[in-house]
Design a binder for these strands. Structure first.
Length: 117
DNA sequence: TGCTTGACATAAT
DNA sequence: CATTATGCCAAGC
């Protein structure tokens, strides 16, 4: 129904679905965006994000539950502060408990097939 | 048109 | 558990 626009935009759309107080990993975003083997592409897309976009790129972190390292240092602190502002708690090593804060995508009801639950 | 880089993930050591 | 090496695709020049 929606044409697969630029690879970036479909990633942005997924990131925009991340609720406040939750985080998602690049790999997860990649899968949700329909590109399971391109976690790098996700990060690359977010890097290409314009400043005033309404995409909460700050809620996207790596699989370690840690804020990704960027070319320009200092931004990590901003991202972390933003997440804390949303209720996300970082442990002593600057990592997030993914088991608790990893965003759980809304279950899209399969139109067919026995709904197991 | 073709080459290089890239906010990562995963497996192996 | 930490670090290293490889793989994946797309965008930019």
């Amino acid at each position: 129904v929606s044409a697969p626009q630029s690879g970036h935009q479909r990633i942005y759309r997924v990131v925009r679905q991340i609720p406040r107080g939750k985080v998602a990993t690049y790999g997860q975003i990649a899968v949700l965006a329909g590109i399971p083997r391109q976690p790098r592409q996700v990060g690359y897309a977010l890097f290409a994000l314009p400043g005033g976009s309404d995409v909460p790129w700050q809620r996207v972190i790596n699989a370690k539950g840690e804020v990704s390292r960027r070319s320009t240092p200092g931004v990590e602190g901003v991202q972390r502060a933003a997440l804390e502002s949303e209720g996300v708690v970082f442990d002593g090593r600057g990592r997030v408990d993914l088991a608790r804060y990893q965003w759980r995508p809304a279950p899209r009801r399969s139109s067919r097939g026995p709904v197991r639950w």
